[in-house]
């Protein structure tokens, strides 16, 4: 169904809504370990593409194959299992559980994956520079700090893919740079695949490949 060079493969993927088409016959291949930036204006279909690659949304037509598995044929619970094994998420809004502290938010991902391990979760927070804030609730943390926790949570189960939807969208330039440096360091250490959606050219340039979308189609695919 696929090879190592076709770690993520989209074939003629479309997504239709009642009043609009979000994706129009997307064909795309991502190799294992690539950092791909997906750019484009608002409403170009970037986030929809990410949601379909993660199985959070289903395409109207087409096929998504990840690591030789056709995820479009999966049932909801199979998809949940696949997601927790293979994929880590970072969103624009931090989406942390407000009543859990930093380490518990990371442990939540461990719990859904297998067994929650507080020490391991604390170590992961240490690696993203949040070792001193493990007992803090999200409301006690800055936007940049919250995103660091989200990165720790996304990577705690060692996923093969990190999907990031505007991860620095709410941050200032300094914090954006820090988050990207952190991501770059972790990427270099672990060699997972990153698909990062952004509308910010500064963020996009950190990727080795940039896909530009417009009106639900890929209009440019550039390697650096």
């Amino acid at each position: 169904m696929g090879s190592a060079d076709e770690f993520i493969k989209l074939r003629c993927v479309s997504k239709e809504y009642a009043t609009a088409s979000a994706l129009r016959g997307i064909d795309m291949v991502v190799e294992k370990g690539q950092w791909v930036s997906v750019v484009g204006p608002s409403g170009s279909g970037k986030s929809t593409l990410l949601n379909i690659m993660s199985g959070l949304d289903n395409p109207t037509s087409g096929q998504v194959v990840i690591d030789s598995t056709d995820i479009t044929a999966m049932k909801e619970d199979e998809m949940a299992r696949f997601r927790r094994e293979k994929i880590g998420f970072v969103f624009q809004q931090s989406h942390l559980i407000p009543y859990l502290n930093a380490v518990e938010n990371v442990m939540l991902a461990q719990y859904f994956h297998s067994i929650a391990d507080e020490r391991e979760a604390a170590d992961s927070l240490e690696r993203v520079g949040m070792g001193h804030r493990i007992d803090h609730k999200p409301s006690q943390l800055s936007g940049g700090e919250q995103q660091r926790i989200c990165i720790a949570r996304a990577l705690i189960n060692s996923p093969q893919i990190l999907l990031a939807d505007e991860p620095t969208g709410n941050l200032d330039r300094e914090n954006t740079r820090k988050i990207l440096e952190l991501l770059n360091r972790l990427y270099s250490e672990r060699q997972f695949t990153i698909i990062l959606v952004t509308h910010d050219p500064f963020v996009a340039q950190w990727g080795r490949r940039t896909i530009t979308m417009e009106d639900g189609k890929i209009i440019r695919d550039e390697y650096r």
Binding site: L56, D77, A80, E85, H95, L108, F112, H113, R153
Partner: peptide
């Protein structure tokens, strides 16, 4: 809803 949606995104199955 956000909490449940996030849990699902993190890979929580129906049983959890």
């Amino acid at each position: 809803k956000e909490e449940i949606g996030l849990m699902k995104a993190l890979g929580a199955g129906s049983e959890k």
